[in-house]
Design a protein around this nucleic acid. Sequence first.
DNA 1: ATACCGACCTGTCAGC
DNA 2: TGCTGACAGGTCGGTA
Length: 299
Amino acid sequence: MPELPEVETIARGLDTRVAGDTVESVWIGSRRQPLKSPAGVIARTLEGKRIARVHRAGKHIVFDLEGESRASRTLALQTKKSKRAVLGQTRQAVFPHRPNEAAQWIVHLGMTGRMVVCEPAAEIAKHTHLIAKLASGRELRFIDPRMFGKLSVHAGGFDPGGVEPLEVSEERFIALFRGRKTPIKSALLNQKLLRGVGNIYADESLFRAGIRPRRRAATITREQLGKLRRAVREVLREAIALGGSSISDYVDADGEEGFFQLQHRVYGREGEPCRVCGTAIRRVVLAGRSSRYCSKCQK
DNA sequence: ATACCGACCTGTCAGC
DNA sequence: TGCTGACAGGTCGGTA
């Protein structure tokens, strides 16, 4: 479901609604998949923590947490009790992971993940995998039918790799792609290079830059790469302004749909006429993903 | 290094 | 009405 503009929209909505709130308790379902950190570690890390801020890194939602988690408080109590036994040693030396150290909760929505803030009385949707009860009385819920989403917690700074497409300089952008033999579409989807661009926005950016998805990155001139960078930024900015693209069931944290799908020029339009030249939009499969393009406007 | 492919899952929709 | 297959916003690991 979510690429950079959708995740940005969701993260902003969550920041507005839950920043400053505190996680009181966490329920995690017993289904197998969508965890990268063990369930107990996630629950213990979240419980008792204050959500300082919610933001986005690539396609990840990042919850900045602060304060002592329940697990840390337990450790602190044990520390006091055992102080006499470890005379002369500091608490930090005994427990090197300092209880007050900031933590981050990372949510990747995969294809179908959703994060909703609701009242406890709200019906629990099918495929709800996590419920966090907040001090304000509301609940933060993670729902994901296909279970491609991932939840994890990190003690230090989370680094998803890659560079942010809305921040990358022209020189850096060109350097990322110059000389690669891979098709430019595959390179755009590679999160280790640019982070946040997915299938929709890769196709839309390539259309605006006039480049076919199969073009080898190495055959693209510096000038064309500059144009591609501007196209990527333009597409992402416009999509964020419209709240992302709602294809089937995407909604943001407030349950609102996005409207960028109305601006799509190639994605989901195979067989329909190009909005610029009228040629039928083609569909090819590249690296297992559908790619749409106009054979006249894109070379 | 780089490419393609299937796997991971459930849901929906078109076609028969 | 119900079955089957294709397809879906994403990533990962194996293999040539």
